[in-house]
Design a protein around this nucleic acid. Structure first.
Length: 424
RNA sequence: GGAGCAGUGGCUGAGCGGCUGAAAGCGACGGUCUUGAAAACCGUUAUACCCUUUGGGUAUCGGGGGUUCGAAUCCCUCCUGCUCCGCCA
């Protein structure tokens, strides 16, 4: 959410931000409502002042005088009722519009309509050239008996799968490895609840907007989080933190649920786009400072790169253009891993910087020691590792001519020292 | 699921229907003292919005509604937590 004062003082900036992000929001209507609501509230305040003044004198009066004052009071109350009613009718529209105003992208973010216009920053690692006909991850998985999509679909519908044996093991190994890296880097490991109230979804910016992407438990009015970002970022929502407690750094591991509505027919093959996966997510809550935000944005990007380099998966870093940014994101880096079967770099990580957009929605603040003011925190998050998507490059890049898979060095300790996955 | 109790400021915790935006303690901040620190003592210390000149006003004691000239304080309702009983992992 954006400060209404900010919006009023920089109308064009926010209109442009909405346009750049392809977001519909009637900012003129928002301002119009704000002015009327403000006037009405001012009127209400004046009425309250008079009411209080009269009320204070009532006990001292009697007879005609008292009657007159009481009559005057009931007139005021009629006015009050009328204004209150008006506010009741219009406040919700204003509140809803406020939730739609986007965070403008940083100046160094390129305007663009969608992910095709993202800007490559750099490439890391060598793309493997095969001297034999390589298999894609599904072929490998089926041949080695470690992936079973058929039965996943039988039991749970499209985009469902089983990981079996060494496949399951590899999946857990990569997650545990990533978590251990984050712990070593000073992030607090967290196991989190995933059934989130609407409030948490709204606070993180998923609602309104991503309802179609979310599984909802209608009976209990709860939502199955699509990422641990939701519980981790909202962990301190509504609280007033101490400045010395910042930054707060979390690493959470959780299952993630996504409906993938509107993606029908897209990436239907293999383990790329699925309804359920596991992910280690990192979240930073820091002070209200652009410099701090920028610093931690680089840090969380760096953390994930450390993991990717340790896994020796070639990747590139991309700066996401305005059209591909979410409503609350000021800037976003994607890490895209090289996937031989897709013959391309494909998204495996997404590092977002929100400034106070999320914190303001969830009333997440700290007391600034210098000014004694309560300020909104800044929040950021990034994937550390998401599996099985990352198994795509791992399986494909680590395959051998005989159809076996070499287990990445850093994962071997997590698989009981096993060096290879072969057909069993 | 049944019965009971409770939700007050950064925290703990008082609070008679008007003088309570709210005692007290803790914490934090400033000062005195000290070579420095601690201790002690003195003082300050909620948030948001509105009008503005120092300043003034309004709202907020879990949410919403009601009674009343007036509500943290009374009534209704919802939410949350705790205790006991039952049931189940």
């Amino acid at each position: 959410m954006i400060d209404i004062k900010e919006i009023k003082e920089n109308l064009e900036r926010f209109k442009k931000a909405a346009k750049d992000k392809n977001i519909e929001v009637d900012i003129d209507r928002l301002i119009y409502l704000d002015n009327l609501l403000r006037d009405t509230k001012k009127k209400l305040q004046d009425i309250a002042t008079q009411k209080n003044k009269i009320g204070k004198n009532i006990p001292k009066l009697s007879g005609i005088e008292k009657e007159t004052e009481l009559g005057w009071l009931s007139d005021l109350k009629k006015d009050e009722k009328f204004s209150e009613q008006w506010i009741k009718e219009h406040q919700p529209e204003f509140d809803n519009l406020m939730l739609l105003v986007p965070q403008p992208a940083d100046d160094d973010v390129k305007p663009g309509k969608d992910d095709t216009e993202n800007v490559e920053l750099r490439r890391e690692g060598q793309v493997r050239q095969f001297d034999f006909k390589f298999k894609d991850h599904m072929q490998l998985g089926v041949d080695l008996g470690i992936i079973d999509v058929e039965r996943g679909v039988k039991l749970a519908g499209t985009r469902s799968y089983f990981l079996k044996g060494n496949g399951a093991r590899l999946h857990w190994a990569v997650l545990q490895f990533a978590m251990d890296v984050m712990i070593a880097r000073g992030y607090s490991p967290m196991s989190v609840p995933l059934l989130m109230k609407d409030e948490a979804m709204r606070g993180t910016g998923y609602y309104p907007g991503s309802e179609e992407q979310t599984y909802r438990m209608e009976r209990d009015e709860l939502n199955l989080a699509g990422t641990a970002e939701v519980p981790l970022t909202a962990y301190h929502s509504g609280e007033l933190l101490r400045e010395e407690d910042l930054p707060i750094k979390f690493a959470g591991m959780s299952t993630c649920f996504r409906r993938e509505a509107g993606a029908a027919g897209k990436d239907t093959y293999g383990l790329y786009r699925i309804h359920q996966f596991d992910k280690v997510e990192q979240v930073v809550i820091c002070k209200n400072s652009v410099e701090e935000s920028n610093k931690y944005h680089e840090e969380i990007l760096g953390n994930s790169e450390v993991v990717m380099r340790a896994l020796e998966v070639p990747y590139r870093v991309v700066v996401v253009c305005t059209g591909d940014l979410g409503r609350g994101q000021a800037k976003k880096y994607d890490i895209e891993a090289w996937m031989p079967s897709r013959n391309n770099y494909c998204e495996t990580h997404s590092a977002s910087k929100f400034y106070e957009f999320q914190a303001r929605r969830m009333n997440l603040r700290y007391k600034d020691s210098a000014t004694k003011k309560n300020l909104f925190c800044h929040t950021l998050n990034n994937t550390v590792i998401a599996s099985p998507r990352v198994l795509i490059p791992i399986l494909e890049l680590y395959q051998n001519a005989d159809g076996s898979i070499t287990v990445p060095k850093v994962l071997q300790p997590y698989m009981g020292g096993q060096e290879r996955i072969t057909k069993t």
